[in-house]
Amino acid sequence: MNPGLPGTGIGGLFYILVALLMPLCEIRRRLKGEAPGRGTLVAKQFAIALGVVAATTGVFWGLDAVFTLNAVAAHVASLDTMKWVPLRVSAVLTTSGVLVTVLASVQVARLVVRLRRSRRAA
């Protein structure tokens, strides 16, 4: 089975980030002498993550271009235009903010549970 909805929301960003971190982890593992030689896997997943970033950036650049043309057309027609933050910026900021919040909440929950356990033990 497959939990969640693949491709949506913060999950995509989470897996991109951890895939981009894989080369650093691999170097650390090798320095510790514990890597079983997974260089191909690391390279493949790193490439996928970069590809996903490129594809997403392309989509947002395209959409921003469409909205810009729309705004220019409205301005030419002397209509009021709505100001917007380019999607490529706002989408990344929003998703990153939510991801950081979710991951931080997990850490807070972990600390709370640990604190309660140590209090009970005392």
Binding site: G4, G9, G11, L103, V106
Partner: peptide
Amino acid sequence: WKGLLHVPFLRSAVAVALWDAIVAS
């Protein structure tokens, strides 16, 4: 959930999957 909180990576992957499944839906 209480046990997962002490398993690195898994706790984050589960939290993210749960968030996406609810919010994206």
